[in-house]
Design a protein around this nucleic acid. Structure first.
Lengths: 241, 241
DNA sequence: CCAGATTTATTGTCTAGACAAAATTGCGCC
DNA sequence: GGCGCAATTTTGTCTAGACAATAAATCTGG
């Protein structure tokens, strides 16, 4: 049994409508009663039912059109929320000891492939290219190859990254407005396999992240996780949106 | 230049606050003016600033506490929204021809490993176990191993899956309330490699999805994508939440 | 100085209205 | 019948207030 906590009225209304939709009683395309009707049905003000309906619309369960009404949305694609943690926080958060080493570091003019990784078509920018290996309990955890746009974060060139790895440091330095992830599987190349202490050709999970601030790229990072030791978990329920 | 469309007042206020936060002018922990102050500053009613602040709280940019006030949230973890499409829709949507074959099919009492895949501790349930291979433009696209809980979807045992593959058919049959994904990389096993027409041991992206309705498992599916031909893309910007 | 009671600031929710915007419906006119 | 205009419905936004819940701050008696 779940405890009967006092839900606010708008949440109650939202639940009631959600139940009709998720149970299939109201199939996709079905017309949801108008705000006016719901006001009469639930005996509350229109702002309250509006709050419930707006939340359902934001969650993608209904589509609302002026003059036409609200309709149950077609379940076209499943969305799932993936949490991408800071590596240092992820490891220390699970009670393991964290350590990292900087394998390589170079300041250079962005090469064509660097520009592609950062997600810009062309241009002349200086980048800091850093390769880091992260350890959890002294076991190689993830291999990181990062580019930092020095036009946006000039301090990165002077930072020794002695206490915090580049990712953690950057997160504290500048806020980001957009992020893009691509996730793929790759057979480990010789050098990465060596650093991660896995067999050459072993499957690795590769997460590439690009971070932008108002359209300009800040950093691009490629994280290579050993396949047999790592997985990403994502959960989604429309009710919690 | 972007067109200057007339934003609603609450969106304007939200933007203004967001700008302060994302630019770093208001660092994490900084106190956001109270609703009362914002009402005076923007010359509108409290409901309007409340709507803006609530949206920022929902997006995770601020944390609100009664009597204490609203504070800029610490950017602790990046969230990203992954869209998981229906395979048939994904392929036909990009203009390729879609085809599938059922490689194997069996109705059986759930084995211990089946129960684990479905996410239940124990119990006696009948499952339909189906293996499907999907093609895009006659090229093997993804290998699917699925379990369907026949206690919830008894019709699955009688369905020939002649026109729609099990995943697409299920999506039309019953609504789901929760979904859980795990994403990992694996070296292709001999049989999967054979079906996908890739080398044995080639890196594959494995997406395992469990779908529930109000806590009871509906289906568990393991999708194996050839690593060199597939990747997942996820985008996130807090402003669009 | 401390424990407990009281005040107060702040957010959370709600109401009963108002006007605007959009899109459908229906009507009148040609 | 067809076209254009007006009426109507429904959602989108907003207001000015109200009371409740929470937790910090302050006051008070010992």
């Amino acid at each position: 049994m779940s405890i009967a906590e006092p839900l606010p009225r708008y949440a109650e209304i939202r639940r009631a409508l959600e139940e009709k939709i998720l149970s299939g009683e109201w199939p996709p395309g079905h017309r949801v009663p108008s705000e006016h009707d719901l006001v009469a049905q639930f005996g509350c003000s229109r702002m309250t039912v509006n709050k419930a309906l707006s939340a359902l619309a934001a969650a993608g369960l209904v589509v609302r059109r002026r003059r036409s009404g609200s309709f149950v949305a077609a379940p076209k694609s499943q969305e799932t929320v993936l949490e991408v943690h800071d590596i240092k926080a992820e490891i220390t958060g699970s009670g393991r000891t964290y350590r990292y080493v900087i394998l390589d570091r170079e300041r250079r003019r962005a090469r064509p492939e660097d520009l592609a990784r950062l997600g810009v078509a062309r241009g002349v920018i200086e980048v800091e290219a850093i390769t880091v290996l992260h350890f959890a309990d002294e076991c190689p955890f993830v291999h990181e190859k990062r580019l930092i746009n020095l036009a946006v974060v000039p301090a990165a060139a002077r930072e020794p990254f002695a206490v915090s790895p580049p990712g953690t440091w950057l997160l504290e330095q500048i806020p980001w407005t957009e992020a893009e992830h691509t996730i793929r599987a790759e057979n480990a190349a010789a050098d990465v396999a060596h650093h991660l202490a896995i067999a050459r050709g072993a499957a690795c999970l590769v997460v590439a992240r690009r971070t932008f601030q108002a359209g300009t790229p800040i950093t691009a990072v490629t994280l290579t996780y050993p396949g047999e030791r790592h997985q990403l978990v994502a959960r989604f329920s429309p009710a919690t949106r």
